[in-house]
Each structure stands twice: as C-alpha cells, then as structure tokens.
Design a protein around this nucleic acid. Sequence first.
DNA 1: TCATTAATAGAGTAGGCACTACAATAATGA
DNA 2: TCATTATTGTAGTGCCTACTCTATTAATGA
Lengths: 201, 201
Amino acid sequence: MRTVNPEKHAARRAAILGAAAGVFAERGYEGATTAAICKRAGVGSGTLFHYFPDKRTVFLAIVADDLAEATAALERIDRSDPAAALDAVLDLLTADLGDPTAPGLAAAMIQLAQRDPEFAATVTARDESTRTVLTDLVAAGRESGVLTADVEPRRAARWIVALTDAGYLISDDDGFDAERDGAELRRIVASYLGRRGDGAR
Amino acid sequence: MRTVNPEKHAARRAAILGAAAGVFAERGYEGATTAAICKRAGVGSGTLFHYFPDKRTVFLAIVADDLAEATAALERIDRSDPAAALDAVLDLLTADLGDPTAPGLAAAMIQLAQRDPEFAATVTARDESTRTVLTDLVAAGRESGVLTADVEPRRAARWIVALTDAGYLISDDDGFDAERDGAELRRIVASYLGRRGDGAR
DNA sequence: TCATTAATAGAGTAGGCACTACAATAATGA
DNA sequence: TCATTATTGTAGTGCCTACTCTATTAATGA
C-alpha cells in the first residue's frame, strides 16, 4: 500500500502555483505556456497535469488561494474602532505594493475574467469580501463622526478598492516608491472620506 | 498606371483597427487571433497582412493612434484658468468611461507592456503627455490658491491618471454608472487637491 | 481601351500549443 | 523485503496559430 502524503503534495502544489503566478504575470494568461510554468517550477508536464487538470484550473487556483488568504486576514481585523480598522484594511490592500509581479497578475486576471464567467465570479468574490467590510466601516465611521464626507458607503468602498488597484497598476512606473506612494494613497482616501484630525493617518 | 487612394486606404485601415480593438479587448493580446480580427473586420487574412506586417504592429497602431488623438485633444485645452483646465482634462480622461471595451483593452495593454519594451514606451508616452499637463496645472492651481492641499504636483498628477485608469478597470462592474461614478471620481480628485469652493466641481 | 499595379481573398505551411500515453521511479504499509 | 500505487519525466499527438503565396479583381492614368 501507499497513501498520499498531504504535506509533500501541498508543497509541490504551492511550488507550481508560485511559478505559475510569475509566468502569468509576465506573459498574461494566454501568453503563459504550460511549458514555461513547468520549467520555472522545475517539474515535467506530466507532474503539472497530475496536480491540475488544465491550465485554466491552475490560474483559478492561484486566485482562489489568494481569496481564501485575503478573507482570513480580513476576518482577523478588530472592527470595534472604525478608524483603526480602516487603517488595517488599507494595510492589507497595500501590502504587496512592492511586488513587481502584481500589476501583470492583475492584468491577467482582468483579461481572463473578461470571457470566463466562472473565473470572473471568483475574482468578484475576492473584491466583494473587501468591499463589504469597507462598506460597513465607512458607514460606521460616518455615524461615529470620524468621517465627515457625504459619501455613499457602498460606492465609496468600491472606489477605495479601485484606488488601491490603481496603485498596483502604476507600481512598475519609474519613480514609484512603495512607501511614499502608499502614504499618498492613504492621504487620498483620508481626504475623500473627510477624515477628521489626522490628514494622512 | 495606378496610384494609391489615401482615403480608401485610411478607411480600410481604420476598419481593421476598430475590429482589432474589440477583439483585443475581449480576448487579450495573445488570446486575440488574427482570424477573429479578419472575420470581424470582414476582410481576408491577406488584406490584414497587406495593411500591417504582423499582429503586434496592429496593436501598436491602436495605441499610437489613440496617443495622437489624446495629445491633440490635450493641446486644444485652454490653460489660462487652472481650475477650468483641470476640469477639461478630467473630462477627457473620463470620456470613455461608458465604453464596455475599455477595461479589456486596458488590461491587454498592461499585459503586452509587461514584456515588450517598445510597446511599453508607447503606452508610457500616452500617459506621460497627460501627466505633464496635469503637473503644470496642479502647480499653477496651488500657486493661484485654488488648490490648497500640500501635494507634490508630479506625484499628484500620476495618481490622478492612475485613478482614472482604475475607473476604467471597474467600469464593467455591476452597479457601475458612468455618470455617477465619473462624478465620484471628480469628488475624489477635488478633495485630494484641496480644491476650494465647489467640493465636487 | 488597355497596360499597370494596388487591393483583396483564400488556401496553404511551418511551428508551437495544451494536453496525453506510458514507462520508470520511489515511497509507503504489511 | 515485497507488493502496491502515488508520483514523476519524456516523447509524443493533433489542433490551432501567425503569417505567406499566389491567383484574381478592379481602379487608375494614358
């Protein structure tokens, strides 16, 4: 007999997904070849297709894993103080601003979401969980008086997410600085929401 | 003898580019097949490659044409009043927010720019002309006192462009409304720049 | 009208792609 | 140790791709 070793399996799987994320980021979904993914992961094509039925599922797994991680991180946030919680969410959203693969990966996701409804749903779900939390926080912040701007919480939440996405899009520009531009992003959000007291943070 | 008819040539060329833009938007750069472009444009593959040497050049032409158009529109703006000029630039930047192909096209551009330096330069040039104008306007606005926020003009210009780009990326979301969300975008920019008087516009 | 040649379509081609078939290896339980 | 089977690599395979070749059409100038 022989049973599966779940740790080894998970490790190999993660290695493949990591390599795949890099290739997808550099070449887009269609441009990424399974051969390139195999090479970077250091496995044969037989191995790749032993772990995943097809290329599409590989990409889906990347997003699904990230969704699970992001959701878990969101749930760990203490929401008793809206202002502090808002900062914490922004920390999460801007955490990977220095990651050079981020813009390419985001572009690849948008691209596939364009014509793959199931994939689109996964991506939407990822944004949705963040938006829901932000919507609540903005509403609570306005009620408690910390946020003074007259905004619709739901719409504001969407734009805050969009704003951080924008950060990833320009993060491969010359002159982009993860720290300084991260601070700028917070300043934009703070002024948008009419945050009282600390202008930037 | 027979000479080229520049009008007919330009018309056919434009028809091909229009069809190509749609296909690139829907399927991404690699996912777009020349066959699909030909079919949508209603021409044979021989015709396509009579007008363009290869697929990459087709995409490059789309961006280059758009760059020329955008630059011309920017130059037409009266820059004597910084506040009004800022509004005019924002009008230009948000003009196509209702275009359903915009997010896909933007994603395809990011994707190809990732690994094609010449293409990346063209895209950068497109953003750069807008950024330069915005940088000047923000600086002028601060000097004249219309803009009260303590921002670096250059960095602010970059973020304003990024913000509008983000608008295009979320413009295929459920609940997105070109007019309302366009207004929201202006509100964000206005508060960010500390625009005096009219909060939204 | 007629020679010239731009414009066009469509069949064809070489190469690259996702994915498979299969043989070989090695980790497990007994 | 040995049987079992999860795991792996390699050598395909058929399909689809960007692009080419060539024959045909039709617009122009003389």
